[in-house]
Structures are given as structure tokens and as C-alpha cells.
Computed example of a mutant assay.
Amino acid sequence: MIQEKLPQGEMVCWILRLWSAAVISMLLLSTCFIISCVVTYQFMLEKPNRTLSELHTYHSSLTWFSEGTMVSEKSWSCCPKNWKPFGSHCYWVTKHTSTYSKASWNESEKNCFSMGAHLLVIHSKEEQDFITGFLNRDAAYFIGLWDSGHRQWQWVSQTPYNASATFWHKGEPSSDDEKCVIINHLNSGWGWNDIPCSGKQQSVCQMKEIQL
């Protein structure tokens, strides 16, 4: 059988494309490794006595992924290991285990901040549906919404509070003494509820993706 050969010019272009893809992949892997080292270093500076298991859980590596089909069209992003990507953000959910305990709203925000993140800010119904897809229906989770006084709700990210894009349970918010917000599941589905900030709950942390 006689095999058809590509013209020399096309062959050269094909080889160059393969080499370009390989080089770009190596550069991305190197960049993610460097970012992982920097994030871990900063993480250790904030609390030098963190255990190795904590480091492994939070920032032992970065998971990178891409959008687009052609190499020239791809947009690459990174999230810390065990964080879930959606849109332009990464999400991490606390779990009540022997390592992690429930915390107040302020403690939860501090925990998120120590990882370079903040409590969850919900931008859309699609985002809430994605997040609640991996939450425990029997648990409640603090989000980054709080009452600064006189029912003036604010997000920890300084994102403007849009009353027309909220997901309160029926009858909520219900009390001026309940100034922090959880997301939980009732018979009507997932929604928001105001509770005292001192209550102990699980939480969801959020950070921007690392764009490459």
C-alpha cells in the first residue's frame, strides 16, 4: 500500500503545533506549581504551626482546567486542591469532622480569610443550585451575608446587595436580633435564613479562580 505523505510545509506546521502544545502544557504546569508554593508559603506565614494534614487539605496542589477547543483559544484557570470550580470562582465546604468543628459566623469568615477566601457570596440562582448540589440537606451553612444594622444587608465581598436576586425562605428574614445568614434545606427546598451570628454552623468559602 502506498501511503500518502503530507507536503513538507504542512508537515513542518503540524510538528510546530505539537511542540507548541507541549511547551504551553509544561509552562502551565510550572506556573501552577509556583502558585501552589506561593499560596502555601503565605498560608504558613498566617499560622506557622499548621499541621501537614491541614496543608495537604487546603493548598497542597492546584487543579487546573481550561475552556475552549483550540490551544490558541484556551483560557486556563486554577483552583486549590479539593475546591470546586464554577464560573470564575472556587468553592470549599467545611465538614463537621474530628478535624473541623462548627463555628460562629465571625469564626467562619476568619477561617475562610486564612485560606485567601471569604464566606460564600451568591450571585445567581445557577450558582446557588451548583453549590447546594454538594451540600448536606441535614446541615446548615453560613454564607457571607450579614445585617450591618436596621436590616441593611451586606456581602463580605462588598458586592452590592440586590433585594431582587435573593433566595430567602418564606417568612425570612424574621428577626432584628438575627444578623447573620445561613443557607439550609427545608421542605420547600434550599434557601436563606437569618440566625444569631453566635450560632455554630458549617460554612462555604469562596475565592476567585487563579487565571493563567
Rank of each mutant, 00 (worst) to 15 (best):
Met1Asn: 10
Glu4Ile: 09
Lys5His: 02
Lys5Phe: 02
Leu6Asn: 06
Pro7Ala: 15
Pro7Met: 14
Gln8Arg: 08
Gly9Val: 15
Val12Met: 14
Trp14Ser: 15
Trp14Gly: 13
Trp14Val: 13
Ile15His: 14
Leu18Arg: 10
Ser20Cys: 05
Ala21Asp: 06
Met26Ser: 13
Leu28Ala: 04
Ser30Asn: 13
Cys32Asp: 03
Phe33Trp: 11
Ile34Val: 15
Ile34Tyr: 07
Ile35Phe: 12
Ile35Lys: 09
Ser36Gln: 08
Cys37Arg: 09
Cys37Met: 11
Cys37Pro: 04
Val39Asp: 10
Tyr41Gly: 03
Lys47Gly: 01
Leu55Asp: 00
Ser60Lys: 04
Leu62Glu: 04
Trp64Thr: 15
Phe65Gln: 02
Phe65Tyr: 12
Glu73Cys: 05
Trp76Gln: 13
Cys78His: 14
Pro80His: 08
Lys84Met: 05
Lys84Pro: 02
Pro85His: 06
Pro85Asp: 05
Trp92Gly: 09
His96Lys: 13
Thr97Ser: 12
Thr97Glu: 09
Ser98Asp: 08
Thr99His: 14
Tyr100Ala: 07
Ser101His: 14
Lys102Trp: 00
Ala103His: 00
Asn106Cys: 05
Glu109Tyr: 11
Asn111Ala: 09
Cys112Asp: 00
Gly116Trp: 03
Ala117Asp: 01
Leu120Val: 04
Ile122Met: 08
Glu126Cys: 01
Gln128Gly: 12
Gln128Ala: 09
Asn136Cys: 13
Asn136Lys: 13
Ala140Phe: 07
Ala140Asp: 05
Ala140Ser: 14
Gly144Trp: 00
Gly144Gln: 02
Gly144Tyr: 00
Trp146Met: 06
Gly149Cys: 01
Gly149Ile: 00
His150Phe: 07
Arg151Cys: 00
Gln152His: 05
Gln152Met: 02
Gln154His: 07
Trp155Leu: 01
Trp155Gln: 02
Val156His: 06
Ser157Gly: 06
Gln158Thr: 13
Pro160Arg: 12
Pro160Leu: 07
Asn162Glu: 03
Thr166His: 03
Phe167Asn: 01
His169Phe: 06
His169Tyr: 08
His169Ser: 01
Lys170Phe: 01
Gly171Asn: 00
Gly171Ile: 02
Gly171Trp: 01
Gly171Leu: 04
Ser175Cys: 09
Ser175Glu: 15
Asp176Phe: 11
Asp177Met: 13
Asp177Glu: 09
Ile182His: 00
Ile183Arg: 00
Leu186His: 05
Asn187Ser: 08
Trp190Val: 05
Trp190Asp: 11
Gly191His: 14
Gly191Thr: 11
Gly191Phe: 12
Asp194Glu: 12
Ile195Val: 15
Pro196Glu: 06
Cys197Lys: 04
Ser198Thr: 08
Gly199Asp: 15
Lys200Gln: 10
Lys200Asp: 02
Lys200Gly: 03
Gln201Pro: 02
Gln202Trp: 00
Gln202Leu: 08
Ser203Ala: 14
Val204Trp: 03
Met207Arg: 09
Gln211Arg: 15
Leu212Glu: 11
